[in-house]
Amino acid sequence: MSTVVNCHEIVCYLQDMMNKRQIYLYTGLAFLFVLSYMLTSSNEDHNDLSENVKIAVREVGNQLLLYNEDNSSLILPVKEVAQGSYELSFEKSLFILPDQLVKIIDSTFQKSDLPKNYRIEVLQCSDQEVAYSYQIKEDKESTIIPCMGRSLPEQCYTIEVKFLNRAALISRSRTLIIVALLSLTLILLEYFLRKQKTSNSLSRSSQQFAKIGSFKFYPDQNKLVKEATEISLSKKECELLAIFISRPNEIIKRDELTKRVWEDNGVIVGRSLDTYISKLRKILMADTSIKLTNVHGVGYKLETI
């Protein structure tokens, strides 16, 4: 007689690998989607910010020219010289009063809802030396605005705006969406892993059986299967049969059977054992290669050929 068969190891291994590959595939696709969204969103946010900054910086140039009582000279196109860094140039020379420059830029940037951490540098066109600079930060203690009240002589200047906190390029709403997508990906991964574990457990449980002659005994499902016929067993019949199958061709005493099936559960039996043995004997008679026999005065034995 064969011993208890858990599930075919090779088949189970292949099933596990296929399930894991599906999980990894879905998870990988989800992460690629999130990553693509992050990159696309970041690029879109940067483009939006860049356009807003150019408009705001151009307005700063317009206000400076008006302060110089210049209504005719041109403001040259605002350039993004590096990521987060913009350059404002003028057609003609102008004088700059730092106090006024700080006020104009602060007012314009607030109206445009631009990031609040930036550095301003006023460069001389002739030698690109820094004629004046200051730094604004949300942390007031880190804000540096020197030399207030001293005007810069009239000449050609280039004003460079550098945003210090590039994280501000991503809007809060998009950040929340990205966090939500990542969280959803992790939740789906956990769900698939749990589903796979449960499915594998049920699959293995449904395939556990012991072979008795031409019968297949499924102890977890309380049934015997002979060819295509299923025979339901009571809980006690199932417990008794499991004991006999674990010790074939061996005499098992009545006292042991009653103790393990009844008395261990707090129940004392009289003739119940004989009744259940009789029922099992009738069921097993369908296969002549096995026999459940009575050893008078001792117990019972499951004989197999």
Results as ranks from 00 to 15, higher is better:
residue 51 E to L: 11
residue 48 D to N: 15
residue 32 L to E: 14
residue 68 N to H: 06
residue 81 V to D: 07
residue 58 R to A: 07
residue 100 Q to K: 12
residue 60 V to I: 15
residue 35 L to C: 12
residue 17 M to P: 00
residue 19 N to K: 09
residue 12 C to Q: 08
residue 112 S to E: 13
residue 95 F to D: 04
residue 27 T to S: 15
residue 69 E to P: 02
residue 109 F to A: 03
residue 38 M to T: 08
residue 19 N to S: 14
residue 97 L to C: 06
residue 35 L to V: 11
residue 61 G to M: 09
residue 26 Y to G: 05
residue 16 D to P: 04
residue 58 R to I: 04
residue 57 V to P: 02
residue 64 L to M: 08
residue 84 G to H: 05
residue 22 Q to W: 09
residue 20 K to T: 09
residue 20 K to W: 04
residue 32 L to N: 13
residue 37 Y to L: 14
residue 55 I to Q: 13
residue 6 N to F: 10
residue 30 A to W: 06
residue 54 K to A: 06
residue 36 S to K: 10
residue 104 I to W: 03
residue 45 D to E: 12
residue 37 Y to I: 10
residue 66 L to E: 08
residue 16 D to L: 13
residue 74 L to I: 00
residue 50 S to V: 13
residue 55 I to G: 05
residue 55 I to A: 12
residue 72 S to Q: 08
residue 71 N to Y: 15
residue 111 K to M: 15
residue 43 N to T: 14
residue 10 I to F: 15
residue 111 K to Q: 15
residue 60 V to Y: 01
residue 78 V to A: 02
residue 54 K to P: 03
residue 28 G to H: 04
residue 100 Q to I: 11
residue 76 L to K: 00
residue 10 I to A: 15
residue 81 V to I: 15
residue 8 H to A: 07
residue 101 L to W: 00
residue 58 R to D: 07
residue 31 F to C: 09
residue 98 P to D: 04
residue 85 S to P: 00
residue 20 K to E: 11
residue 13 Y to I: 10
residue 77 P to D: 12
residue 99 D to H: 10
residue 94 L to F: 01
residue 67 Y to T: 05
residue 23 I to P: 05
residue 51 E to C: 09
